[in-house]
Design a protein around this nucleic acid. Structure first.
Lengths: 195, 195
DNA sequence: GTCTATAAGTGGATAGAC
DNA sequence: GTCTATCCACTTATAGAC
């Protein structure tokens, strides 16, 4: 990956972010050095500081980018008119979206404690926006009389944790395909909130 | 916490483990220095090496101790004779046990990547033993005809993730008591596997 | 069993040359 | 925009005094 001198402003920035994402996910933020990120990109450590003010901003940028992308993807969805269909769409979306970016998901959950308090608050606010859509779906279902949920806030946390857990065990090429896994989880989600 | 010289072999060992558990959970293994642990205990960094060979062994010992305790607690339970009661007992046990030791649970999930491959394999084997009991309960329920589960392996991972998630949001003194939370989760678990 | 001192190396971040 | 060189604080772990 070693390069000789030269200017590459338009490609080095994204490459720094990609390298940091991969390394932070595999080794953890605290265990990764700026020199290691630079080596992956093919520059010297000093060059990183043309793109980021410090290591903390690099971490925050990765987490914020991930959550912005998540919320943008939700904003692009046209909601079904009934709660059951909305919940199925949300379930399958969550599994697929998180499956497609395991490194970003891992970092967004594991490195929260390495954020400054201000950055932590901003990330948590974005995450809460996402969770609120699921709670909204559950409340709609209760109002429609198609769901029976003891507590919509608790059910939201329970379902999000269940769905995100797919990333901890699912591997491509195993016994089940991702659409099969989606269907199994949807069955369990549907029944858990059924009347 | 500063102390003057003296011998304290019988108390320093446990105090090192307690301090490391707390600090690793709050800041992460890689971000905590041996000096920091020593300062919490009230000794100099060099004294730690009378109790542990190195930092890695300290981490592994904490995780192994946690999982040994978990499996010992399960071994002490007399199983009910029907799958529904067994599953309710497992659900409430999991929530309570994990609630009682949030730092150990956090470390056991978050610091797996900081284990050497050999240590990682030993920890994963212990965790699988615990998960196997839940899958066994689900299979028993299917055999008895009281559960309808699309895939017992996937359902096991889904339910464990859901139950462990309680630790990420539940705080004592909030809107709900822990027994109330247990009951809400048991309702969702029961329905998700119901026939 | 704990201390002090130290070895040998790595950390994030900056300065100035090109 | 990237390089080399550097600052200095900090890292894990060990040696030997007490």
């Amino acid at each position: 990956m070693a390069r000789t001198q030269g200017s590459h402003s338009d490609i080095t920035g994204p490459r720094i972010r990609e390298a940091a994402l991969r390394l932070f996910a595999r080794q953890g933020y605290a265990a990764v050095s700026m020199r290691q990120i630079a080596a992956e990109v093919g520059v010297q450590a000093g060059a990183l500081y043309n793109y980021i003010p410090d290591k903390q901003s690099l971490l925050f940028g990765l987490m914020k980018g991930h959550l912005d992308e998540l919320l943008a993807a939700r904003a692009a969805v046209v909601p079904a008119d009934n709660a059951v269909d909305r919940l199925e769409e949300f379930t399958r979306f969550h599994i697929r979206f998180h499956h497609d970016r395991p490194d970003a998901v891992f970092i967004a959950y594991m490195e929260l404690r390495n954020l400054t308090p201000e950055n932590f608050a901003r990330i948590e606010s974005l995450r809460r926006q996402y969770e609120n859509e699921l709670e909204d779906i559950l409340r709609q279902g209760v109002t429609e009389g198609v769901f029976d949920v003891p507590d919509t806030k608790v059910a939201t946390m329970a379902l999000i944790a269940m769905l995100t857990g797919v990333n901890t065990w699912f591997r491509e090429g195993g016994r089940l395909s991702l659409p099969e896994v989606e269907t199994i989880y949807w069955t369990m989600v549907r029944k858990s909130v059924a009347r």
